[in-house]
Amino acid sequence: MNEHTTCSEDLAAEVRRVAKLARIYVSEDDVAQWTRDLGRILEYVRQLNELDVDSVEPTAHAIPVANVMRDDEPRPGLPHTEALSNAPAARDGLFIVPKIIE
């Protein structure tokens, strides 16, 4: 595993990078706090390195099933007003957001 992440300066940079990816604004205090937390947690989870898992298949699902599908049949959706009923901002049937520059 990535031993360099134990360096707290690197880890602080990682916290900032990851917070950006997760779209969460972080203050410097947050960075300090989460760097400490993440450091401890990562240190703890690194015990998984003790296990030899090279030949082990990963488990993504707790159940061994496949091919659960639906027929291509329409179903009623949400009434238009209910679709927008929780919108923080709506106009002309649209969800309104700050102007997107594409």
Partner: peptide, 11 residues
């Protein structure tokens, strides 16, 4: 996304 003068709208 649809774009207006001050905002954008999503359908």
């Amino acid at each position: 996304n649809l774009h207006f003068a001050q905002s954008s709208g999503v359908d």
